[in-house]
Design a protein around this nucleic acid. Structure first.
Length: 581
RNA sequence: GCUACUGUGGCUCAAUGGUAGAGCAGUACAUUCGUAACGUACAGGUUGGGGGUUCGAUUCCCCCCAGUAGCUCCA
């Protein structure tokens, strides 16, 4: 049986395999530190973890020790035996063992739930299973790291020590996984951002990124693309201030629901807040005049810079910052326009993500504990979002209680190089804000009505999106985004005149060109140009200068041979116009 | 914010209880060389900040700041 090939393609098998390994981890830790209390130890996407409550702090050396102990348990190939106990006996067993966390888990199980345990050797753990038949079936194990994690994910409760590990049916597969992780690290946008001189974050401003000239090119290209696409889709653009009076934030509900994340300031003794969201500004902009029902839908976009006080430990390169620019828009509409507008935004997001070749998944986030509005309004809003997704025939998962305080949302998540997902696009349906700000329009009945509003972003934040793009393309950006699109390298200084002339001409055609006429060997200049991830590199020597041609090399396709300057110009301009990836 | 870890010249890293070294990048000189690093020289650091222990700390201790991983939270 143990010789049977373990099918990791089967998610259930994989999960069962990893879950068993987490029990082996727990057994090893209990052997080495009998006083350790066990919390929980599930299989996760890339492996498994187990949480322990233990005075002794695990070090990297400890991980090695534990791993050795795990090997012994695997070699002993204990069978995993399941047994069930009535509730009181189960509690007695765990209380006797001093496993207070397990007792709490049992006490929280529903009355009619079967309480099962798994035993391997002298180790017993509360567990619903399933498990492998014996510990000897586990082949390649590696403990990855140790980190803190709150008991039951509650920051008010004790922080436990969590050991992360992974395991595979063979050493080769484990090695492959480790190698993949190494490769992914090379794509880290923080590393590439530094190497390509795109952006920087200094101690003087944690979470407040600086964009350098090359990063600004990417930013500006994204923004002009954004404007173009919004124009096409009937959006108008506004800009609202960064700082607004306290009253506004009371009206919007931010003061009550979002204060912890806001920065405040005073002007002439009056309280002001730095905006954490753009919507209240958009509300004021709406209120500047009267509207007819014929004016809807009204789509108002804003590239709005917001500031949010994120916890220091949450900051992460460009992905999680304390100031970012949302590619925001607020759509005001009539009740019967809701679904169509949501579908329109879904299509828009899908168009943009597909352009870059992104895979994404969607979550529907429902009413959080701290929220405004009635249950009926929330139900209606959630149903509208779900209906739009259903009309598109798109899959989504429900993310219970994770909505914004003013309404439910559809969140679009993109993956980074390490498989972590980041929320980028979001569509939020809001019945609250228009009421609170007393927004109105005149309906066909001649009466005043309150419009319905959508908040939405496509990129999410320009910063995060650039981070994701950087990792997705490993710094080899599509030509239209590349900070330098073509780099010309001279073989010797003799060809500098020709190179500069070509450079000038390509620049006049609208291309971003760099010419390297330095007195260095061509191999050296070439190496540097490649390290800079330049999409196109041309070496210019005697041959090219005489024929007035270019020998071009693509970072993606390799050598493309000799072409006329015209050809190169046309080729690149077309690639840019096509936004080819 | 919490837990653990880390913090040395622009970058990557080394070293030691006795006031720091290398490679890359930079500058100068030399070289004019056709597809991933020519050579020589120079310059560059009060070892994140503050305090303490010590005859002496960058190395040990404490506090703070920043970063990394994870948790919590989130675009």
């Amino acid at each position: 049986m143990a010789k049977e090939k373990i099918n990791f393609e089967d998610e259930q098998v994989k999960s069962c395999y990893r879950h068993t390994t987490s029990h082996i981890l727990a057994q090893a830790v209990k052997k080495l530190w009998p006083e350790a209390k066990l919390a929980i130890g599930p299989a996760i996407d890339n492996g498994f973890y187990y949480d322990f409550d233990l005075e002794h702090k695990f070090s990297d050396q400890d991980l090695m020790k534990i791993q050795k102990e795990m090997k012994k348990i695997i070699q002993a190939s204990y069978p995993l035996e399941r047994f069930e106990l009535p509730r009181d006996e189960a509690i007695k067993l765990m209380t006797g063992a001093g496993e207070t966390y397990k007792v709490e888990l049992i006490e929280d199980l529903p009355e009619d739930e079967v309480i099962s345990f798994y035993k391997q050797g002298d180790f017993v753990d509360l567990c619903a299973g399933p498990h492998m038949e014996k510990t000897g079936q586990i082949k390649a194990v590696k403990l990855m790291s140790v980190a803190g994690a709150y008991w039951r994910g509650d920051e008010k409760r004790k922080m436990l020590q969590r050991i992360y590990g992974t395991c595979f049916p063979s050493q080769a597969e484990l090695d492959e996984y480790i190698e993949k992780l190494e490769e992914a690290k090379k794509r880290d946008h923080r590393k590439i951002g530094k190497e390509m001189d795109l952006f920087a974050i200094y101690e003087e401003g944690p979470g407040f990124p600086f964009f350098m000239p090359k990063g600004m090119i990417i930013r500006n290209e994204l923004e002009s693309f954004w404007r173009q696409e919004h124009n096409k889709r009937g959006y108008q653009e506004i800009k609202t201030p960064l700082i607004l009076n306290e009253d506004l934030w009371h009206t919007s509900g931010h003061w009550d629901h979002y204060e912890n994340n806001m920065y405040f300031t005073k002007i002439d003794d009056a309280d002001y807040a730095i905006k954490p969201m753009n919507c209240p500004g958009a509300m004021l902009a709406y209120k500047r005049k009267m509207y007819s029902y014929r004016d809807f839908p009204m789509r108002i976009g804003e590239l709005g810079q917001v500031h949010r006080h994120e916890l220091s430990g949450a900051l992460h390169g460009l992905m999680r910052v304390r100031t970012f620019t949302q590619d925001d828009a607020h759509i005001f509409m009539l009740p019967d326009q809701i679904k169509e507008e949501i579908v329109g935004v879904i299509d828009f997001i899908d168009y943009v993500y597909n352009l870059f070749g992104f895979k994404y998944h969607v979550e529907l986030s429902t009413k959080p504990e701290d929220s405004m509005g009635t249950d009926e309004e929330w139900t209606m809003a959630i149903e509208a979002l779900a209906a739009a997704m259903d009309q598109k025939g798109m899959e989504y998962v429900i993310n219970e209680g994770d909505g914004a305080f003013y309404g439910p949302k559809l969140d679009f998540h993109l993956e980074d190089s390490l498989g972590r997902t980041w929320q980028c696009g979001t569509i939020q349906l809001d019945f609250q804000m228009p009421q609170r700000f007393d927004l109105t329009y005149i309906g066909p009945d001649g009466e005043k009505h309150t419009p319905i509003m959508i908040h939405r972003v496509i990129f999410g934040s320009i910063e995060r999106f650039i981070g994701i793009l950087t990792e997705h393309f490993a710094g080899k950006f599509p030509l239209w985004l590349a900070p330098v699109q073509i780099k010309l390298l001279t073989v010797t200084e003799k060809f500098a005149d020709y190179a500069l002339e070509v450079g000038k001409r390509l620049e006049e055609a609208g291309l971003r060109v760099e010419v390297d006429v330095r007195n260095e060997k061509i191999g050296y200049k070439l190496r540097q140009a490649r390290n800079e991830r330049n999409p196109y590199i041309c070496v210019i020597g005697e041959r090219e200068a005489e024929a007035r041609s270019l020998t071009i090399r693509s970072s993606k396709l390799g050598e493309l041979g000799e072409m006329s300057i015209d050809e190169v110009e046309r080729k690149l301009l077309k690639e840019i116009a096509d936004k080819a990836v």
